[in-house]
Amino acid sequence: MSNWTEIAKLEDIPRLGSRVLTTDTMNIALFRTATDEVFAIRDECPHKQGPLSQGIVHGTSVTCPLHNWKIDLASGEALGPDEGCTNTFETKIEDGRVFLALAAANEAAA
């Protein structure tokens, strides 16, 4: 079940950058790529819980600022040789507004 919640305007997120969404249960990192795709993943590196939102975005991956793990934004999975995975959430963009499937986020936290 999707439960689309508007969370930001696309322009609020810097291109090749990110914003952090704080919720009651966790922080979610929203990334905007060079081609204006937006990805949402739990703001915790599977390695040592580093805040992925603070990493450098390139292509559709982000490099964790703590120990340089590379995480795929679409799947939440660490790219070789590291192994691990963090939650991802669906997003959509309509008229320059960014929506997040929040029900799924709540489930992931539960």
């Binding site: 950058g17 805040p51 603070q54 450098i56 703590l66």
Partner: peptide, 14 residues
């Protein structure tokens, strides 16, 4: 800013 490592982007040491 987006090509800076976080420490330099946020001007603090993570």
């Amino acid at each position: 800013a987006q090509s800076r490592f976080i420490n330099e982007r946020a001007h603090g040491n993570i």
